[in-house]
Amino acid sequence: MFAAGTAAFGTLPAGKKMVIGMSQCNLGEPWRVQMNADIKKAAQKVPGLDVVFKDAQNDTLKQRAQVEEFINSGVDLLIVSPKEAAPLTPPIAEAYKKGIPVIVLDRKVLGNDYTMFIGADNKRIGLAAGRWIAKRLGGKGKIVELKGLMTSTPGQDRNSGFRQGIKGSGLQVAFEADMKWLEPDARKEMESALAVHSDVDLVYAHNDPGAHGAYLAAKAVGREKNIMFVGIDGLPQEGQAYVKQGLLEASFEYPTGGKEAVENAMKILGGKKGLPKELKLESRVFTKANIDKGGELLK
């Protein structure tokens, strides 16, 4: 699916070997497993490039220690997808000052002591989803919003962006609940929404598993045909698969940036100058109509 960019990312001088250290904050989420897979896949296209992966298991201090280990082992470049900004800022700055280029992925750190930040914008994706949904429903309808963990920034941004996107339209959020990114919870909450409201038009879930859980809840009472389901993330084996199977009306991609990280790592290692400090990732929307063409870029 992502095979479009098979062109080499660049090459290392013949016979030269280089090592990238990748510190992932948590491999408990499919999206982050996908990020690592994207990095691995991209790196395999460069002969002589080796990537060492470390998983901090959602522990900030463990991640800090792992970054320090990478510095000590003398990797040529660091990719860090940090769990939290403040505690990871000092070790990343230390690597940067020692001359190890650092690419920060998905979540930012404080200050300027890193080489490049690559990430997507949840608020923009939520906003695009809101506008898309308002258009799809012709400006009016009853919505169920199944929110991700509302103490997390992605949950907050996907909520506030969406609310901004539907502002001024006749859409009404009739039922909202925090499903904590979890599919079984989404199914439970959706069952309640269906019991209370007999006329739901669309479910906006902050991730695809949530939308899928809502779909299963509606299917159990024979109402899945009258309701549209929209999710976020667009992973190949989740959101894209659900759209392809006709379960979801749309899935909005939250790109992992894994491929872009390796691309830019090669430019940095090749000594290229004038690279941007911050790279905003483009996001795509997958619908039944465009899924076979690889989705459509959001404007």
């Binding site: 491999l27 408990g28 497993v33 084996q237």
Partner: peptide, 14 residues
């Protein structure tokens, strides 16, 4: 492999 085991089965070619 850390991923959900679903009806979408990954093939060798990705």
């Amino acid at each position: 492999g850390g991923q959900k085991v679903s009806t979408a089965v990954a093939q060798a070619d990705g």
